[in-house]
Design a protein around this nucleic acid. Sequence first.
RNA 1: GGGGCCGUGGUGUAGCCGGUUUAGCACACCUGCCUGUCACGCAGGAGAUCGCGAGUUCGAAUCUCGUCGGUCCCGCCA
Length: 586
Amino acid sequence: MNKEFKRTEYCGELNIDDVGRQVVLNGWVNRRRDHGGLIFVDLRDRTGIVQLVFDPKHNNDSFELAQQLKNEWVIGIKGKINKRPEGSENLKIPTGEIEILVDKLTVFSRSNILPFNVNEEEDVDEYTRLRYRFLDLRRPRLQKNIELRHRVSQIVRKYLSDSGFWEVETPMLTRSTPEGARDYLVPSRVHKGKFYALPQSPQLFKQMLMVSGIDRYFQIARCFRDEDLRADRQPEFTQIDLEASFIDEEDIFSIVEGLMYSIFKGALDIELTLPFPRMSYREAYTRFGTDRPDIRYDTELYDVSDVLNKISFPPFQDKEVIAIRVSSRGNITRKGIDELTDSARALGAKGLAWLSLQDEPRGPFSKFLNGHILDRLKTITNSDKGDLLLFIADEPGIARVTMGRFRLEINRRFFQPNTQYAFLWIVDFPLFSFNKDENRIEAEHHPFTSPKDEDIYLLETEPLKVRANAYDLVLNGVELGSGSIRNSDPEMQKRVFSILGIDEADAYKKFGFLLEALSYGAPPHGGMALGLDRIVAIMAGEESIREVLAFPKTQNAFCPLTEAPSDVDENQLKELGISIRKEEVL
RNA sequence: GGGGCCGUGGUGUAGCCGGUUUAGCACACCUGCCUGUCACGCAGGAGAUCGCGAGUUCGAAUCUCGUCGGUCCCGCCA
């Protein structure tokens, strides 16, 4: 790089106090305004924009060169910081009181015609944005998000390091483990026919680090899961993973609360209120139909089965009937009801019944109601005249979960959140859940979670009633992370495996290294993993974690920029001892 | 695997419901003019077989079906 044009400072950091100084600036041409006898250029770097002035009377060579400049050319300039003439200040930008009168200009590189306008915040088709992600990343929105993410990462490192956690890296090439998500596999050349797996999380390694006496571990860890994508799910994502020894749940809560406090204070200058509220898994499902309730909104679910099973309205017969109150919306139109019904159906509801509480209640089953039933309904749902009640009926458990999803739609449609950030701990998770499709018991969290002491006696007899030392952190209805106190006793770990249908031989084959480690003096330990992408996305006000990832993939896990995944050479496959089964591909 | 929405010059969109237009507009691009703009302005120009395929029709960007891609959701995600 030409030393003469070595940058002395950034564009966006200059202000009125700098007037009179000579500077060298480097950056991209954000926009050129050519007045014929005078040219203005907005020069942009990651800090912002500053206005350059090219005046032929001041330096004609630079002026003539500036006539050629186009958007996104990369240039360097030498010049003097001037106060703008009276009346020509631009108060919309931070550097709007000053401008740079350019002495010399050099063009570092030119740009092709752009696939989209980098200097405008218009919504571009997401495929095109990803295809040209290097340009998309120049725009302020993503620059801000990437910077925010950087700041959060730095705060996490400092906070956890200051709290005695050591940052330890664990293998990316590891072994495939049963249960959990589908693995991304990596074929081994040396061991033909065998595969590594990319980690779904560093779970087993961090537990072994506890056995190793590391005592407190953390990692900003990339994790891989080959499952279908969502706005908040990418095939590779990042967890703030931590584990500590000789601790209990309360220790984890206060460490993580302190961490979140530091993140929000340090990156957004927002002071969170601690401690975060807690809610049991059971209460969350009862009141909100989900284990990650968005408590920014007051709306709740009400079980009105007992009352409405009695009336002669066929959809309610022998069904679980769950109601939700939409306060002061009793005046909804027929069209409004139809729209709600459509969205409820899209979320899995068989239908949507409604009741508008007027002087005379209106709705599809209002004629079956008497005064007593109506009063009971109003009491249970805490509703009054002018309110709208909506009902979903289905098999027990189903109606509640469906209404839980529909509640989010109701909130979006009718209400403003009460607060910007609503954190919530979900505690007392069950240790197991029953998978109907596969007709077997599964780990609700993961197979290494310990049961609550007081429920251990139920393990073999009523395993589904056993509660776990497991917890989730929820923010605005998003699961930010989950964790647990692990089984540090190999005998307990074996009991849990056995209930999961993993017999002893099987357990040793698949997790022997962990069981072995636990048998050489394992401290009580537990930890948590928090989704960094999700945290940053919420802080940035983004709906999708793609907006806080530099190079995300599309919903079918394709990268339009690199065109991954791709074919590979036949030779590469041969070295790995792999052949593609054409009939499976086509 | 399933459902919803979207696909029109390089980009963003109008037109599509109720079929017949020279497919309109803005930004970007090209040529020229312009000394205080900051979404600079003015004059002119080039650029689109309307994602792809089939069907209905005298006639399809517009209606139907299929397909590809994007996105949101359900399933899946210990």
